[in-house]
Design a protein around this nucleic acid. Structure first.
Ligand SMILES: [Mn+2]
Ligand SMILES: [Mn+2]
Ligand SMILES: [Mn+2]
Ligand SMILES: [Mn+2]
Lengths: 220, 220
DNA sequence: AAATATTTTTAGATTTGTCTAAATTTTAAT
DNA sequence: ATTAAAATTTAGACAAATCTAAAAATATTT
């Protein structure tokens, strides 16, 4: 089946929201999509008609199994294109989201599969997010955010929670990228900020808010 | 300024039609776009309002200078993406048009420029059509169709006139691609068909209709 | 439990792009 | 010069996606 760009964007947003909260409500989706609650309700009816959504009015909603499959294909395309933009076209990682937001709607299945192969079947996108495979399966990694890491243990940055351009820009300033080796030297009780040592750099301090959005795994 | 996908498709079609005939009329555009004359008229009004078109009702129309620039950028994107699909993703040349028809509407200028560089700033797309540069300038080549070539002279295939999948499939069957060396052995007066010799193959016969759509230049 | 606030849905409008059918204009034929 | 044919435009309708304002349902507070 084929979906409009708008439908795909809604489906993807619902998918991301329900990953966190299980069930999604109208206002949070409206906020995520930068649209109005009334518009969301209209689209929910369409998606329910197409059996992509479990939805009863006033009761919240979540994707059906079919809906989830559609969402995963859009996510797959988004992350593969982001990988292409960074690895092949040398875009900075904080510049690719908006472009991938358009490219993810190109419809050819063969294109996606060939792109995947051309890129060497990558498992993670430039922000460390897992790329679903052709069947929608997602590779898992054991990762935790920096606030949960014991002191002095060296870990590797594996992904970024908040991917707002502001956050990514900040990480660029700190010289933190995926794969960067870090250890936590000190945790300050007053505001939860962390003193960290970044490989080959002088120790510096990051706020708790930033630390919570830096995910890491133990070095192999 | 930014245009909708539909506007871009109309602008591009008008551009291609006026390349041949100077001025364009409603019905031929409707045919080209697989739409109805009434829809064309509606869009003409929009494009005229946006100063992309010189248009007076019942009198035909053509692109303004601004309109031509927009068209050339869309053509540029279309042909760069086609090149990408064939050279990098190894698509057959008869499978890329429909996909490029979508990709040409991705809006980022930086993307186009980086793609161009990544591909090595190609001058011609997989069908031998020239790729406009950033400023809309088009490389020219001296080419003629096969019916105008003197007998026994060896020439190189440089582009294809009719690019319908049926035509491209046929050329694939004949083993004719861009760069293929050909010479005309004989011209049959009865139906205008040509006996030709394709490099490393036995002589074969092609119809006048096919010959007219094979453009060639003299080998360097 | 009643009143108030929040969330969600409906009603009705708007924009974009399309369509059919009818009217108008231009062109070609008698 | 009329008439007939072809091309083009207008009138009016429709689907998709959005919006604002008002109504309805649910949740929270007194
Ligand atoms: Mn998108
Ligand atoms: Mn990403
Ligand atoms: Mn197109
Ligand atoms: Mn082409």
């Amino acid at each position: 089946m084929n979906f409009t760009i708008s439908e795909e964007n809604y489906i993807k947003s619902i998918y991301h929201l329900q990953q966190q909260s299980g069930i999604v409500n109208t206002n949070s989706l409206a906020a995520q999509m930068h649209t109005r609650a009334a518009s969301v309700t209209d689209m929910l009816k369409k998606l329910k008609n197409k059996k992509l959504l479990q939805y009863e009015r006033y009761k919240g909603f979540k994707l059906s199994e079919t809906g989830k499959k559609v969402a995963l294909q859009v996510v797959r395309k988004h992350r593969l294109w982001e990988f292409f933009l960074v690895e092949k076209l040398k875009f900075d990682w904080d510049k690719v989201h908006a472009i991938a937001e358009e490219l993810e709607h190109i419809s050819s299945d063969e294109l996606v599969q060939r792109l995947d192969n051309f890129l060497g079947n990558p498992s993670f996108d430039p922000h460390g997010d897992p790329i679903p495979d052709k069947n929608g399966r997602i590779p898992t990694i054991n990762q935790q955010n920096l606030t949960n890491i014991p002191l002095k243990k060296t870990v590797t940055v594996s992904s970024v929670g908040n991917q707002a351009p502001q956050m990514l820009e900040m990480l660029k300033h700190y010289n933190i990228a995926l794969g960067t080796q870090v250890s936590v030297l000190n945790k300050f009780e007053f505001d939860g900020s962390l003193q960290i040592k970044i490989f080959k750099q002088n120790p510096c301090i990051i706020s708790e808010q930033v630390a919570k959005n830096i995910f890491v795994h133990y070095a192999e």
